[in-house]
């Protein structure tokens, strides 16, 4: 039982309120670990709040979240990535600088080759010296998702992706699927919110809110 708990992510009897609105009450979920968990629900059903809560950005009012055998908070922060729906890139910096500094802040090595390789895979290498404020939403999204394509990202336990397919073109979607499959094959767990009906992955679980 303990070894099973170590690899699992479980929400037990979770309640969450934001302001006066109750988002969840007595929510119980067992996520597929390793594997892809697709969180579906109507607008305002609390998909993003769920990811933020798992990522510790929101504090649950009641209940327990078991994150891979009760990882300590600091260890958990170093073991996952949250890619939010809105871009979290600084407008004053170029795409390359944003990614370089992001890697640095995580305590990872940052060299130009690594970042160029990641941008090239998403097909946005030519925009690397563009200021983020000059880029379209699609390019911003691809730059944001390039964070997942570093070697260190594949060594993490979990990716939390909030509507990653928004603004992406077909090539972007295909490449994202490729790296998601690679991460799952390396025993990674993905929690993804999505409105898409067609799911092209093999090993997945749908969670409806």
């Amino acid at each position: 039982m303990t070894s099973r708990l170590k690899d699992n992510m479980i929400l037990k009897n979770i309640s969450l309120t934001r302001g006066l609105k109750t988002i969840f009450s007595s929510l119980n979920i067992e996520f597929l670990c390793p594997g892809l968990n697709i969180i579906k629900g109507e607008n305002g059903s609390g998909k993003t709040s769920l990811l933020m809560m798992i990522s510790t950005l929101l504090q649950e009012d009641r209940g327990t979240i078991i994150r891979f055998g009760k990882l300590k908070k600091n260890d958990w922060l170093n073991e996952h990535i949250l890619i939010k729906q809105n871009s979290s890139l600084s407008d004053e910096l170029t795409i390359e600088e944003n990614l370089k500094i992001w890697c640095g802040l995580k305590g990872w090595d940052f060299n130009t080759d690594k970042i160029e390789k990641s941008l090239k895979n998403f097909g946005i290498l030519k925009y690397k010296n563009f200021l983020v404020s000059e880029c379209s939403s699609g390019i911003k999204k691809k730059a944001e998702l390039s964070k997942l394509n570093f070697d260190e990202s594949f060594k993490l336990k979990c990716w939390l992706l909030d509507e990653p397919l928004n603004h992406l073109d077909e090539n972007g979607k295909l490449f994202l699927k490729k790296i998601m499959d690679k991460f799952i094959n390396m025993n990674g767990t993905i929690l993804q919110t999505s409105h898409e009906k067609k799911i092209n992955h093999k090993n997945f679980k749908i969670i409806k809110l």
Binding site: E97, K100, I101, G104, F110
Partner: peptide, 8 residues
């Protein structure tokens, strides 16, 4: 790396 990135 964190310090360098932050100052940069």
């Amino acid at each position: 790396n964190i310090l360098i990135a932050l100052i940069e």
